[in-house]
């Protein structure tokens, strides 16, 4: 083994040991804040791992979503929970009495740690047995993908799988995003953001970084057909910018009229569906792009998806439907 190989092997070993150690801390740390910080660290470690395992697209997604956005969501939920004062804050449900019930009196007993440990040991033993017996070399579908991508003029094979070969999965996945927004909005209005959040530092930082982030998002989208990147990574970049703006007290969606917000959320999935259905109209299968226009169609789908994803992620972070929403959810409208 040469020197570089040795360094790599040592690096791998360190990461392999660190991952479960940090995970243990994230799950078991006595202090919840510390647990969240360790969880964010775990996400960054995983992103590093994806790089080591030759998965740069996953690394980008993990760093932005799995670590960054999840971290922001967890921290804001922790802060909201801390602000919740039972009694003072208890909202009477706005639903008729006959639709609601008090929480059940008798309920479940927590599982004992011993039983849980037993279950976990069985699961880990079985999985270890399975993983070690897998063949140590397996091509998977890599040769098949390599055979098909040249036809499509898409050098990024992951984008090819996500948007073309398995585009249907991705359509449903954007459906999951849309569904998550519907679910969050159906749960009620967004809580009041904390008043004292934005210092002048953050304000200035966002002012400088914001335009750069928009540029990066555009680049990730454009380059994503040939280099690591794509609609999700770009959309998350926009979403992250929105979250930063929210933190700085400049709520990016608050000024949008309700219909514009809803249009932005829905347009990505709707355009994806429309492209799919148009293909049926042309006598092809659903989402079966014609050879000559495949790349252009994919870019079009990705561009609208990016905007929807960005807006959806900011909406998820807001934690409820916007106060400006005049969607008929005010009392008396429906």
């Amino acid at each position: 083994m040469d020197a570089l190989g040795l360094v790599n092997a040592a690096f791998d070993l360190v990461v392999i040991v660190l991952l479960p150690a940090v995970a243990l801390g994230a799950v078991m740390s006595a202090d919840l804040f510390k647990a969240i910080i360790l969880f964010i660290t775990l996400g960054l470690l995983l992103a590093l791992t994806w790089v080591r395992l030759a998965a740069p697209d996953v690394a980008l997604a993990e760093a932005a979503i799995g670590s960054g956005l999840m971290g922001a969501l967890l921290l804001s939920a922790r802060e909201r929970l801390a602000r919740t004062r039972p009694g003072r804050d208890r909202r009477t449900s706005h639903y008729p009495r006959w639709m609601t019930h008090p929480p059940p009196r008798r309920s479940h007993r927590a599982v004992s740690p011993w039983a849980a440990s037993g279950l976990v040991l069985i699961a880990v033993a079985g999985l270890t047995a399975a993983v070690v017996t897998l063949p140590h070399e397996a091509a998977g579908l890599a040769p098949e993908v390599a055979r098909q991508t040249p036809q499509r003029d898409l050098a990024n094979q992951v984008t090819f799988v996500l948007l073309d070969a398995r585009g249907y999965d991705t359509l449903l996945e954007i459906g999951v995003l849309l569904l998550a927004v519907a679910a969050v909005w159906s749960l009620g209005e967004a809580p009041e953001p904390p008043q004292n959040a934005a210092g002048p530092m953050l304000q200035g930082f966002v002012g400088t970084v914001g335009p750069i982030m928009v540029l990066v998002a555009g680049y990730l989208l454009w380059a994503g057909t040939d280099a690591p990147g794509g609609a999700f990574q770009a959309g998350v970049m926009l979403g992250a910018l929105g979250v930063l703006l929210s933190l700085a007290g400049r709520h990016p969606l608050a000024r949008l009229p309700g219909w514009a917000l809803r249009l932005a959320v829905v347009s990505g999935p709707m355009l994806f569906l429309a492209v799919g259905v148009t293909m049926i109209g042309l006598g092809r299968h659903f989402l079966e792009y014609p050879q000559a226009h495949a790349k252009a169609l994919i870019l079009l789908i990705e561009a609208t998806a990016m905007i929807s994803i960005g807006v959806i992620l900011v909406s998820l972070y807001a934690g409820g439907r916007p106060l400006s929403d005049e969607s008929g959810t005010r009392k008396g409208r429906l």
Binding site: H94, M99, T100, H101, P102, D169, L172, A183
Partner: peptide, 29 residues
Amino acid sequence: IFNLYVTLELVGLSAVALVALAGGGAALT
């Protein structure tokens, strides 16, 4: 089998949100 996973998540998440529509402690928990 992977597409089934995505559909399974869609079913689960939308079902959960529907339960919560009732509002109130019992439905939310």
